[in-house]
C-alpha cells in the first residue's frame, strides 16, 4: 500500500495544505485591494496628467481666460461648465417628476401584469446604449427642432435626450423606495378615508423622501457624466447660450472632441476638466452616503 498522501508532500506543499484557509484569505484580500485601489489610481492619474497646466497657469485661468483656445494658451472652461450645468439642470428638472410619477403608476395604479411589463420596459430603456440615443436624437429629434427653430442641434435637444436617458435611473430607484414603505401606512390612510392622490402626496412621498433624494443624486451624476448622446445632439459650439435653441458644448463633449489631437498643455487642460467631473461625482457619492446614514 502506498504511503498516505500528506507524507509524500514537500515541506512547502504540506505547509500550504495546513494553511490553505489563510492563503485563500490573503489571496482574496489582494484581489479586493486591486478592486478598491482602482478609484485611487484614477484619481492619481488624473491629477498627475493635469498638474503641468495647473502649475503653469493656475486654477484661476480656467475661469478667467478670454476664451477656450488651448493652442494659444487660453483655457476658459466657463462656457462648457454652463453647457454641462444647463443640460443637467433641465434634464433633472424634467426627469425627476416623470420618473417618480411613473414609479407611483407602477406601485399604486397599474394592474399587476402591466406593472411587471412596464418595469421591464424601463429596464430596457436604461440599457439602450448612449450612442444609440445620440444617433436617434441626431436623425429624428434634431431635424424636428430644426423645423421649429434652426439650427436644431441645441441645448433643447440635449435636455430632451438626457431626460430620456436618466429617467429610468430615478424611476427604478423611486420604485425600490416605494417598495420599502410599510403596508400599514397605506392601510391606515385608506381607513382614514384619504383619497388616492392624498395618500401619495401626504404619506408615500414624505416616507420615501430620502430614497427619492438618492435617486435624484444618481440621475444628476448620470446627466453630468453623459458624453456620447450630448456630443451628438448639442452642436458643440463653445459659447454661453442665450436661448434654449442655441448650440452648446458640455465638459464631457469637449474632452471627447479634442482628446484625439490634444498635445502638451492642451491635453493637460482636458485632464483638468476630467478631474473637475470626477470631483463632482465624488461629492455626489459623499452626499448619497450622508443621506443613507441618516435613515
Amino acid at each position: 500500500m502506498s504511503k498516505p498522501k500528506t507524507l509524500s508532500q514537500s515541506p512547502l506543499q504540506s505547509w500550504f495544505t495546513r494553511h490553505k484557509d489563510q492563503c485563500l484569505v490573503w489571496l482574496l484580500r489582494g484581489l479586493a485591494a486591486i478592486a478598491g485601489a482602482i478609484i485611487l489610481l484614477i484619481l492619481i492619474f488624473l491629477i498627475k496628467e493635469s498638474l503641468p497646466v495647473l502649475q503653469e497657469v493656475g486654477i484661476k485661468a480656467f475661469f478667467q481666460d478670454r476664451a477656450w483656445n488651448p493652442v494659444e494658451q487660453s483655457y476658459n472652461l466657463v462656457p462648457m461648465i454652463w453647457g454641462t450645468g444647463l443640460t443637467m439642470f433641465g434634464s433633472v428638472l424634467l426627469a425627476t417628476p416623470l420618473g417618480i410619477l411613473s414609479a407611483i403608476f407602477c406601485h399604486y395604479y397599474a394592474p399587476q401584469s402591466i406593472a411587471i411589463i412596464y418595469r421591464r420596459l424601463i429596464e430596457l430603456l436604461a440599457g439602450i446604449p448612449s450612442v444609440v440615443y445620440g444617433f436617434w436624437g441626431l436623425v429624428v429629434l434634431v431635424p424636428m427642432i430644426n423645423r421649429l427653430h434652426p439650427p436644431g442641434t441645441s441645448l433643447l435637444a440635449g435636455i430632451c435626450i438626457l431626460t430620456l436617458m436618466i429617467l429610468p435611473t430615478i424611476a427604478l430607484v423611486a420604485d425600490a423606495a416605494f417598495a420599502e414603505i410599510p403596508q400599514e401606512y397605506l392601510l391606515g390612510a385608506k381607513a382614514m378615508g384619504l383619497s388616492a392622490s392624498g395618500t401619495i402626496w401626504h404619506i408615500v412621498i414624505p416616507t420615501a423622501k430620502s430614497g427619492l433624494l438618492i435617486g435624484v443624486i444618481l440621475e444628476t451624476g448620470r446627466a453630468i457624466g453623459e458624453t456620447m448622446a450630448v456630443l451628438m445632439v448639442c452642436g458643440n459650439v463653445v459659447q454661453t447660450p442665450d436661448s434654449i435653441f442655441d448650440p452648446i458644448r458640455t465638459l464631457t463633449a469637449n474632452i471627447a472632441l479634442e482628446m484625439a489631437y490634444a498635445l502638451g498643455n492642451h491635453r493637460s487642460a482636458l485632464f483638468v476638466s476630467g478631474l473637475l467631473l470626477l470631483m463632482i461625482i465624488i461629492v455626489l457619492a459623499i452626499a448619497t452616503e450622508l443621506i443613507d446614514q441618516e435613515v
Binding site: 478598491g36 484614477i42 498627475k48 457624466g225 458624453t227 464631457t252 470626477l278 452616503e289
Partner: peptide, 20 residues
C-alpha cells in the same frame, strides 16, 4: 470605493485608460 467607482463617468474612464 466601489460605490464611487460605479458613478465615475465613462469619459473619465477613457482619460484614465489613455493615461494608464
Amino acid at each position: 470605493s466601489l460605490d464611487v467607482l460605479a458613478g465615475v463617468p465613462s469619459i473619465v474612464f477613457g482619460l484614465f485608460g489613455n493615461a494608464f
